[in-house]
Design a binder for these strands. Structure first.
Length: 465
RNA sequence: GCCCCCAUCGUUCAGUGGCCUAGGACACUGCCCUUUCACGGCAGGAACACGGGUUCGAAUCCCGUUGGGGGUACCA
């Protein structure tokens, strides 16, 4: 057969298969979402397969209902997948694998209690880890017995990380780790190595917090009979303001929280993308297709990135403003609070350009649908305690009685008073009416209120002068 | 402690030996626009952690120091 030209070299022989493997022990958080996203981007970029694999080997910690929540969060972000597996469905295969290790002498049973091995470690002089006490004790199956993998005493386990370059571990540093719990349930290392091999995973894209487990997984993979390695890409961590790995405990980071705070999923996804990777020409906000097109794992940075909500908000406001008024109205309605839908439909266009997050909407509308907040001392002094304000209010109140009740007419009325009196009139009217000195354009919402309500509010303010 | 990783403006990304008197974005400050706020426009301050090499030449390569982080479970 004739040899193909360059394309033969350029095209990988195997199609890309990647997986996102969350443990259902909590809601999807931004770190996990970013891992999922980078896997997905690479799968779509290379026309490969995106696999969702639920790593629920720890029955005590896993909560089945969280799987649905993870699905929802991924879907919200627009991340889809082609195959899905659940490790709890595959226990038998992992158990068989572990048994084969036992049969081949690659693993052994151990009946040391955790207290006992810790006591020995302390006696050894603080060097933690299991010491291989049971390696040749021929322990039999029984209560409290685990299976440990026999790690090599010498040599090096290494891989060429797409993001970090070559990473090496001395095998002598590796302890004989547990692969089957005393309950008989295999540990995640086994499941992970087995599945990556069995599912033909070509690229392992995951957080840097997993690098230390890579040698174990690699050793297990070899024990399973593999002669190759997947390509690893260990993503830099997303950190909080103290530069620590984001944690569900101390940081408010679940994807659902951001949904509830009024972030658009496209903005969230786009922002997450820019943490550790960037498109050509300094472009930060692009259609997802363009990102997919340009995405390469090897272009990802090595340094941890801070999750900056300010920047996320900027992205969000950009995406909000890019929406058509119709789409904005529809998508923001659930955040608008207790307001007549038709009324909101008329006012949404004024809201759209003024918010960074959808959850800011109710406060913007407060004076339209309910009572305005009490003006602050400072605002009152600055706006109302000036010469001519009482004349302005008097005149506006007077003319309101007979004015046509439309936005243009009201604008003309208020500005007309200003021209006659040689002063600016919007601010005092705004403060009297809305309670604050910033917000929506004044006249359109004003025309939505009843004449009596508007007049009453202005009178109240006038009385306070 | 031990193992592993990381190090460019406050933040984030760019920069892969000369194009860098280091660029973009967010944030911040000032001005303009505007009879609110926001948007928009213009301008500004702001960084290659330190010390050694290598080289004609280093933000870019090597070594060390310092600093930060991750891991060190019968969690994943």
């Amino acid at each position: 057969m004739a040899r193909q030209p360059e394309s033969r070299v350029m095209t990988p022989k195997t199609t890309v298969r990647v997986r996102f493997s969350p443990a259902p022990t909590g809601y999807l958080h931004v770190g996990g979402a970013r891992s999922a996203l980078f896997n997905w981007l690479y799968a779509r970029h290379s026309s490969g397969t995106m696999i969702l694999r639920i790593e629920d080997t720890d029955a005590d910690r896993s909560r089945p209902e969280l799987i649905t929540a993870i699905h929802d969060s991924l879907r919200w972000l627009g991340i889809d997948w082609d195959e899905e597996y659940r490790q709890s469905d595959r226990f038998d295969q992992y158990r068989d694998a572990a048994q084969s290790f036992l049969d081949k002498g690659l693993a052994y049973r151990c009946d040391c209690s955790q207290e006992a091995s810790k006591a020995r470690a302390d006696a050894r002089g603080g060097k933690p880890g299991y010491d291989g006490y049971c390696r040749d004790r021929d322990v039999q199956q029984g209560e409290g017995v685990v299976v440990r993998f026999r790690t090599p005493d010498e040599g090096v386990t290494a891989w060429d990380d797409l993001i970090r370059g070559r990473v090496e571990f001395q095998n002598s540093e590796l302890e004989d780790f547990v692969i089957v719990r005393s309950s008989g349930v295999p540990m995640f290392h086994v499941a992970n190595a087995y599945d990556d091999l069995d599912m033909g995973i070509t690229h392992v894209v995951r957080g840097e917090d997993l690098v230390n487990t890579t040698p174990r997984v690699l050793l297990l993979r070899t024990a399973l009979g593999a002669t190759d390695q997947p390509i690893f890409a260990h993503l830099p961590l997303i950190v909080n303001e103290k530069r620590q790995k984001l944690s569900k405990r101390r940081d408010d980071v679940s994807v659902g929280d951001y949904m509830a705070k009024g972030f658009l999923s496209e903005a969230m996804r786009n922002y997450l993308l820019t943490l550790g990777w960037s498109a050509k020409d300094d472009a930060e906000i692009l259609p997802i297709e363009e990102f997919i097109n340009q995405f390469e794992l090897s272009d990802i940075n090595q340094a941890p990135a801070f999750f900056d909500i300010k920047k996320l908000e900027h992205f969000n406001s950009e995406y909000i403003r890019a929406l058509s008024v119709e789409e904005f109205t529809e998508r923001s309605l659930p955040f608008a609070g207790n307001i007549d839908h038709d009324l909101y439909g008329r006012l949404a266009q004024f809201v759209q350009g003024r918010i960074k997050r959808l959850d800011e909407i109710p406060s913007l509308l407060e004076w339209v649908v309910g009572q305005p907040p009490e003006p602050s001392e400072k605002d009152w002094r600055k706006v109302m305690e000036k010469d001519g304000v009482s004349e302005v209010l008097d005149l506006v109140i007077e003319r309101l009685a007979n004015s046509e009740w439309t936005a243009p007419a009201l604008e003309k009325l208020v500005f007309g008073v200003g021209e006659e009196l040689g002063t600016k009139t919007q601010l005092p009217v705004r403060l009297a009416l809305t309670g604050v000195r910033f917000g929506l354009p004044l006249f359109e919402p004003m025309a939505e209120l009843d004449r009596e309500v508007v007049t009453e509010r202005l009178r109240t303010a006038r009385a306070r002068l």
